[in-house]
Design a protein around this nucleic acid. Structure first.
Lengths: 172, 172
DNA sequence: TCTAGTCTTGAACAGATGTTCAATCTCAAC
DNA sequence: GTTGAGATTGAACATCTGTTCAAGACTAGA
């Protein structure tokens, strides 16, 4: 029932959410104590989705897992304007609100940790510190891809950027 | 008189702007026809600032100019939370409003063009197409730096990212 | 000093928005 | 069939927000 209708700014008002969900106004306040609670739920959901990107099936070999994770961020399903716009709105919201910022920070931390762990298992000879360093650098490029995609990043540039993240991750 | 007090979402209401500027409510509507006009003015101002980053003094030699432009995006003055948050808010706004999106797109285009031109003059043997390609890739990393800085990018990672943009720009 | 033009003010209005609440509906357990 | 707890509804309320406007303040030229 959540997450949709974010086609506007913080123009997500309770009435619009209710309309989008096909329920009455009162019901939204029945399930979510606050408007804050509602947005917090949406934020948490998006954050969990992001973290899921670096926590895949343990069946595949480490190297494959890492490469898959690096490719997945540029999945056409994810790199769509609606999804990115939603992400951007939530990031912007987090900037204005301490509570949301904390949730976001924690999710970001978990994401980088997950990425560093993937690198670690793909290249066991690297020190944890070096893994973390590489994860930091990769996240910069990934965030750049996401943001630039909103401004019309072409597919070729995306491909080159992904290759760059692969090079960083798998450098000797 | 503009640009300030963006500590909130689109919680920039006319009354808050007036208070921040130390004037009466009516005056804001006297100078800006609309709330839209006000935000548009702020957006244009930030966009112009960005473009100025790649249009520096013609006195310095091309190579220096390029390197300086690449370094300037990570200037501690620019990479501050308030400024980045403002940028993020405006980007988010642009996503929700066609009018703003057009202004943003045009500024982005001009920025990449400016960067490509800088690369072209620093490395005259490159084709314009190759320059543009490199500019595209650099912008991805720069946007990533900006966005990640909001989530607590450490200085060391910023330095490495800048070095990466330099390598892309100056690759043979 | 008078005047005309611009700047500045804050009250007033209409509409939107978050939240509350009494009333109604649903449906499983007895 | 009755009961009762939870689900669902929409009207009502208080507050906030964009916009308008009549009135006053300021300034420079005659």
């Amino acid at each position: 029932m959540v997450l949709l209708s974010k086609h506007g700014i913080s123009g997500v008002n309770m009435r619009a959410v209710a309309r989008e969900a096909g329920v009455a106004l009162g019901l939204v306040n029945y399930y979510y104590q606050d408007k804050m609670s509602l947005i917090r739920a949406a934020l948490k959901r998006v954050d969990e989705d992001d973290i899921a990107l670096v926590k895949p099936d343990a069946a595949t070999p480490p190297r494959e897992r890492l490469l898959e994770a690096l490719r997945r961020v540029a999945d056409p399903d994810l790199l769509t304007t609606p999804y990115l716009a939603l992400r951007l709105q939530l990031w912007a919201l987090a900037q204005a609100n301490e509570d949301f910022a904390a949730i976001n920070d924690e999710a970001f931390e978990r994401y980088v940790d997950g990425l560093a762990a993937l690198i670690g298992s793909a290249k066991p000879d690297l020190s944890p510190k070096e893994c973390r360093k590489r994860a930091d650098d990769i996240v910069v490029i990934q965030n750049g891809m996401w943001l630039t995609a909103l401004l019309g990043l072409n597919r070729a540039s995306t491909e080159r950027s992904i290759r760059r993240t692969e090079e960083i991750a798998l450098a000797p």
